[in-house]
Amino acid sequence: MQIFVKTLTGKTITLEVEPSDTIENVKAKIQDKEGIPPDQQRSIFAGKQLEDGRTLSDYNIQKESTLHLVLR
Rank of each mutant, 00 (worst) to 15 (best):
M1H: 04
M1R: 01
Q2Y: 13
Q2M: 12
I3K: 00
I3Y: 00
I3V: 05
I3E: 00
F4P: 00
V5E: 00
V5W: 02
T7D: 06
T7S: 06
T7C: 08
T9C: 13
K11E: 09
K11H: 10
T12C: 12
I13S: 00
I13D: 01
I13P: 00
I13K: 00
T14L: 10
T14Y: 06
T14S: 10
L15Q: 01
L15W: 00
L15G: 00
E16T: 13
V17T: 00
E18H: 14
E18N: 13
P19Q: 06
P19L: 09
P19H: 04
S20N: 12
S20K: 07
S20A: 08
S20V: 04
S20H: 11
D21E: 08
D21T: 08
T22I: 04
I23A: 01
I23T: 02
I23W: 10
N25R: 14
N25H: 12
N25A: 13
N25Q: 14
V26L: 13
K27P: 01
A28F: 12
K29S: 03
K29L: 10
K29V: 04
I30M: 05
I30G: 02
I30Y: 04
Q31P: 04
D32S: 10
D32R: 11
D32N: 10
D32M: 13
K33S: 10
E34A: 13
E34M: 15
I36V: 10
I36E: 09
P37K: 10
P37G: 10
P38A: 15
P38G: 10
Q40H: 12
Q40E: 11
Q41N: 08
Q41Y: 15
R42N: 13
S43G: 12
S43R: 05
I44H: 07
I44Y: 15
I44S: 06
F45G: 02
F45M: 05
A46F: 15
G47H: 07
G47P: 03
G47D: 08
G47A: 04
K48S: 10
K48D: 07
Q49N: 10
L50T: 02
E51F: 06
E51A: 07
D52I: 05
D52Q: 04
G53P: 04
G53H: 14
G53E: 09
G53A: 09
T55S: 08
T55K: 10
T55R: 08
L56R: 00
L56M: 04
S57A: 14
S57L: 10
S57G: 10
Y59N: 01
Y59M: 03
N60Q: 08
N60S: 06
N60R: 06
I61M: 03
Q62P: 08
Q62I: 11
K63Y: 06
S65Y: 08
S65M: 11
S65N: 08
S65Q: 11
T66V: 13
T66M: 08
T66K: 03
L67N: 01
L67T: 00
H68R: 08
H68C: 09
H68G: 03
L69P: 01
L69I: 10
V70M: 09
V70P: 03
L71P: 09
R72P: 12
